[in-house]
Design a protein around this nucleic acid. Structure first.
Lengths: 197, 197, 197, 197
DNA sequence: TATGAATGAGCCTTCATTCAT
DNA sequence: TATGAATGAAGGCTCATTCAT
């Protein structure tokens, strides 16, 4: 009985190498060697190197979407839900730091149709996030003087940027960073009893 | 008499192509064709493709550093200076959107020594920014409950992310976005009369 | 109970694909898919892809030889026999147009020993045809000023060429073409003292 | 000063190898080795292996067309012109026997657009030949009871077939075969004082 | 300075065939 | 008989870089 399938092992090796050296600098040969399989075996499961890259995107997109949906489905006060979502996105991104590196850096290496597919699913994800923001705005919790796309970019930029600076070996723990970035974001958008701007 | 030098023309073409297709997907042949020069001519000015990429980094790093230094040199209230810096960084990043795309996406394509060189100069840049923050914190303007590296990442993530979403053709003008993102950032870090977190 | 055996189904699919795309451009995978069987099943009946190609040659050679032998065995005036042979060869070639395409185009794709085997059997076939010609020449019916190999080539070139131009959907029927080409051939070789036919 | 260009040398080697082993069985590596150049040099002149194959077709098509046009342009009695054309086509085909082998055997290995291009130019060529036949028929020289496409196929089948049997080392000289096949063809289609069919 | 033909290493991919089940 | 995952050897092609001119 094999512990892990060829496909899993290949994907794991690919993520690691793509994150470390970049997609273009990683040869299929390196991947299969790191995965301990043969080239032929890999091509039995993946049609192309592009296919392998997309598999990584697919896994990430599916994971992100399902976690977001789950938290929203749980319900609760909108401010609590948004906070929970932000914390979770950041924590998950830290759990999948190499995947994130690849995700945000290698989109342009995908074939054009797949770039569009990723962008489409990403938009769905953002839209659900935007709906939360809207609820909070409707409830008078969040400022409305800044366009929603800017607010969304403001939050996801933090998520995106994690792989550029965060290290598990660094002084901050995953949870701390999640709390801190979430706090910075929410403080920035919250309509305090006083005035915004 | 030529309007522009070979080196300039090549750099210009390279930035455009690297931003549009990625460094790895762009051949030297494409670059020299787009620049209207020959391969031999290019190799007179750049030792390698890597050299060409580094030239783009060098130009950006120099530009960013000089603008930051200049604004700081101008002096003034720390809060005003920080605000001016933030606005300027964002506006400049929008002015150089393709350069920014390359800058944040292709670091790993540089040779190792040059990656370190970029990182080193980037750190110098961040340190100067951090010093500003520190001044504000010392003056009791900004919160101190969040580590400085997190605060810095929080701001530069917005800068980084611009090339992922901002479009000059979009509804927001350069100045508006610069004001909005700066405001979100400063609101997030400012120590209001009440308490943060 | 299966209507057709695996071997038959595979051969049928192979002929079709080889004729349409060529032997080299057809993968074993395509063949087994078109035949509705698995690779393993195919390799139970054929030792190799080469084996499969040879099976097609074998079937054609056997068919051609047996039809020729049968018509000659029937006996009759030599001119009538030759005419019957020519008409039959052409009609049969039209009935097996895809097989013919493969037959004349893919000989060089066979392994060397099998190429020789095909050539050998082909020579036997031609020799029997030559014997007919000889009989006619001995009887003073056909011209002798042209070497037999040239006469034989002149006839079989027509057969060979059918797959390059003839289409069942075209204006000429199988029988018409058979008659016309046979007539052109016989008119060309006949020693007319007076009239033709 | 080089005697032959890289492109010429490569084409020459390719024709030889394609004729001997088939297009599919010949690797680019074999070609460049036989031509005494490097792979890179070859790809400087040919975009692909397909491109190289097409170059052979192009040369043959151009040659055939120009010879046909030239002979027709020379003018004369239609029967003499047709005879001259037939003899020339056969002699030229013998001069370019390897090219002919490739020409008639490897059409299906070309990319689809190029197959069409070849077919188109081939049709132009056949049409000019057909016009000659028509003139002869109008002049009452050639039989009209057989469709022109059949007559044309009847002649070109001989040309096509040459590479399957003719050898310069064989007993027949180029000119003899040309005369003999032309004679067989013309005898077959000529309307003698008597009746045909 | 400038040209562009030529180099040569390496890359992604295909595919006939094998073999444990 | 039959499966289909896995093998392993090529194969076609790209491309940064060099160099004679």
């Amino acid at each position: 009985m094999k512990d892990v399938s060829v496909a899993d092992e290949v994907t794991r090796a690919a993520v690691e190498l793509f994150a470390a050296q970049g997609y273009a600098n990683t040869s299929v040969q390196q991947i299969v060697e790191a995965a301990g399989v043969t080239k032929g075996a890999m091509y039995h499961y993946f049609e192309s190197k592009d296919d392998l890259l997309f598999a990584i995107y697919d896994r990430m997109l599916t994971l992100q979407q399902s976690r977001l949906d789950e938290i929203i489905a749980r319900g609760g006060e909108v401010d609590d839900v948004l906070r929970a979502v932000c914390v979770d996105v950041i924590e998950t991104s830290i759990d999948f730091l190499p995947e994130g590196t690849v995700f945000f850096r290698s989109l342009h290496m995908l074939s054009a149709p797949r770039q569009q597919e990723v962008t489409r699913r990403r938009r769905v994800y953002h839209d659900r996030f935007a709906a939360l923001l809207q609820q909070g705005q409707d409830a008078g919790l969040y400022r409305t003087d800044i366009p929603q796309p800017v607010l969304i970019a403001h939050f996801f930029s933090d998520v995106h940027y994690l792989s550029h600076w965060y290290s598990p070996e660094g002084p901050e723990t995953k949870s701390e960073v999640a709390e801190q970035l979430t706090d910075l974001f929410l403080t920035g958008i919250r309509l305090t009893n006083g005035s915004a701007t």
